[in-house]
Amino acid sequence: MKPYGLATETCAPDKVPVPLFDEHGRCMPSGLTATAHARTRRYFICTQPEIDYGAIHARIKTHLGIADALTAAEFETRAEAIMQHLRNDPATAEMTRGVAVPFFLPQASYPDYGAALEHTYLEAVKNAFADKLPQYDFVNHHRDGLAGKLDIVRGSRHDKLVEAMRHQSVVGVFFPCLSEYSVPAAIEQTGKLPAQFMLAGGFDTCAALIGSPDLLLRTDGYPPLLWLAALAAEKEATGYHFEAYGYNLTFNRRPHFGQAAEYWASGLVVLD
């Protein structure tokens, strides 16, 4: 077996190579028609934020205004169970060696994804960032509003997260492990992974950043840009993303044209 899957290889879903992730937790491109870099020099990487379940729990509870949140102990137990489950499977064990960000989301349903993202989740990211890093700023550069502009991408499995939220609060772990994938390749790759893996969208990525506002803060190098790859924007080949600017955090929109870039990454999410 090659150390890295090549983007041009063909690979049926039932013949997914084992392991699925490299020694740094990166999901290896496998049998993709869309563009992803087969190898990475790991120049744009996230560093693991501190996992203090109590602090993460408090931030998410406070900034999303969840009155009846699960307890911090329950959050920790459920998130650790996800990690242990992944560690126990040889196909996914390597994933846990990469950056992993536990989060939870409230029981909720929204008539419009974009409006909820803008008014509830991005506001919470802003407040959590200001709380944890008061000397720096979170800036939403997209001033034209998100209401009515976002749809869940078919095949991303993000609809499962949204559906789960309708019934109960959910606990998950966010992995920024689809590094150097084009957005179409991130979607395609998700479809080749076992069903437990979902492509990250808006609510989950925001929850990860609310709980760990310093996820994209690096002083010794550059973190990647994080696409909300599970969300289709109002215009084809365009997407929304988080990106560091120095020590600051930004939210913005840009065309991606289906290209892969060393700087671009998407996230996978696993729920309990």
């Binding site: 020099r41 744009f44 550059y222 560091a244 600017y245 840009r254 044209f257 290209q259 870039a261």
Partner: peptide, 18 residues
């Protein structure tokens, strides 16, 4: 060209050691 396009946040010749 992978070094130049499509987008990177840092200065290629000023910051990227490789």
């Amino acid at each position: 060209n992978p070094w130049l396009g499509p987008y990177r946040p840092d200065c290629l010749i000023g910051e990227d050691p490789k």
